[in-house]
Simulated assay, not measured.
Amino acid sequence: MAKAEFYVSADVEADGPIPGPFSMSSFGLAVAGVRRGGVFEAGDPAERTFYAELKPISDAYDAEALAVGGLDRGVLAREGQEPARAMNDAAAWLAGVAGELAATPVFVAYPLGYDWMWMYWYFMRFAEAGSPFGHSRCMDLKTLYAARAAVPLSEATKRSMPGHLLSSRPHTHNALDDAIEQAELFQNLMRWEAAV
């Protein structure tokens, strides 16, 4: 029997295009549900969450990228968590949820590439045990929609999705808000019987 998995919706705000030269400003994680024995069980994504704001790791930043999340870089430099603490705390939180649910974590995002790149790099660089998701336990919601709707990836945009798939929550660019919103999109995609 396949091991149970729980799906963690993740959202990242950062001050540039790539980790290393630039910094992750904040990230949010929200548990969207569990799959046991082939059956998906959705949960309230606001029930199990993790959020952190981080100190910058370099002096470089892109003002436009930083502005998206609305966080003040000076405040983050003074009051943000050290990256090692934030990533180890996130890993411990994920381990606690894994134990509680008796399931393995899977990272989900829309689109996956950006958020996974940041989180994987930060976990590998700063967390003592590396990535709680391994190097590949991740799912791209854009690809999931394209496959379920039988459309090209270029047409797998939120604007082209049926309205009932989208969350009713606003997209605020707060990493935790957006992780919760995205978790609802994931739940809807998992339950969707596409008419193709």
Results as ranks from 00 to 15, higher is better:
residue 94 L to H: 02
residue 57 I to C: 09
residue 116 W to E: 07
residue 45 P to A: 12
residue 76 L to I: 03
residue 164 H to Q: 13
residue 78 R to L: 05
residue 146 A to I: 04
residue 7 Y to Q: 09
residue 3 K to V: 09
residue 78 R to Q: 06
residue 154 S to I: 00
residue 188 N to S: 15
residue 149 A to L: 07
residue 22 F to A: 05
residue 171 H to D: 15
residue 22 F to H: 12
residue 161 M to A: 08
residue 196 V to W: 13
residue 97 V to D: 12
residue 156 A to Q: 05
residue 49 T to H: 12
residue 79 E to R: 04
residue 59 D to W: 04
residue 189 L to M: 15
residue 185 L to N: 07
residue 106 V to F: 00
residue 143 T to M: 10
residue 93 W to P: 02
residue 50 F to Q: 08
residue 40 F to G: 04
residue 71 L to T: 01
residue 103 A to V: 04
residue 196 V to H: 14
residue 146 A to W: 03
residue 87 M to V: 01
residue 143 T to E: 08
residue 174 N to M: 11
residue 16 G to T: 02
residue 124 M to S: 07
residue 115 D to C: 13
residue 138 C to P: 00
residue 128 E to P: 02
residue 35 R to Q: 13
residue 147 A to G: 06
residue 101 L to K: 08
residue 114 Y to M: 12
residue 34 V to P: 07
residue 183 A to Q: 03
residue 158 K to Q: 05
residue 191 R to I: 01
residue 80 G to I: 01
residue 59 D to H: 05
residue 55 K to E: 13
residue 171 H to Y: 13
residue 13 E to C: 09
residue 67 A to K: 11
residue 10 A to N: 08
residue 45 P to N: 12
residue 68 V to T: 10
residue 64 E to C: 00
residue 53 E to W: 03
residue 97 V to E: 14
residue 137 R to F: 05
residue 38 G to V: 02
residue 124 M to E: 07
residue 114 Y to A: 11
residue 18 I to H: 10
residue 7 Y to N: 11
residue 102 A to W: 03
residue 19 P to V: 09
residue 167 S to H: 10
residue 134 G to M: 08
residue 17 P to F: 08
residue 179 A to F: 08
residue 38 G to T: 02
residue 18 I to W: 09
residue 62 D to N: 10
residue 193 E to H: 15
residue 150 A to S: 10
residue 51 Y to N: 08
residue 33 G to A: 11
residue 178 D to H: 15
residue 107 F to S: 08
residue 124 M to N: 11
residue 95 A to P: 03
residue 87 M to N: 01
residue 29 L to R: 04
residue 176 L to G: 14
residue 156 A to R: 02
residue 105 P to R: 06
residue 170 P to R: 12
residue 87 M to L: 13
residue 58 S to I: 05
residue 94 L to R: 02
residue 157 T to D: 00
residue 158 K to N: 00
residue 124 M to A: 07
residue 195 A to V: 14
residue 147 A to V: 11
residue 79 E to H: 00
residue 9 S to I: 08
residue 119 M to Y: 10
residue 48 R to S: 14
residue 40 F to M: 08
residue 163 G to K: 15
residue 79 E to P: 00
residue 144 L to H: 01
residue 35 R to Y: 01
residue 15 D to P: 06
residue 127 A to Y: 01
residue 160 S to I: 01
residue 78 R to D: 02
residue 40 F to Y: 15
residue 145 Y to M: 05
residue 184 E to C: 13
residue 193 E to P: 14
residue 46 A to W: 04
residue 126 F to T: 04
residue 52 A to S: 13
residue 57 I to W: 06
residue 32 A to R: 00
residue 64 E to V: 10
residue 176 L to N: 14
residue 177 D to T: 09
residue 51 Y to P: 05
residue 177 D to K: 15
residue 160 S to H: 10
residue 177 D to Q: 14
residue 98 A to C: 10
residue 55 K to L: 10
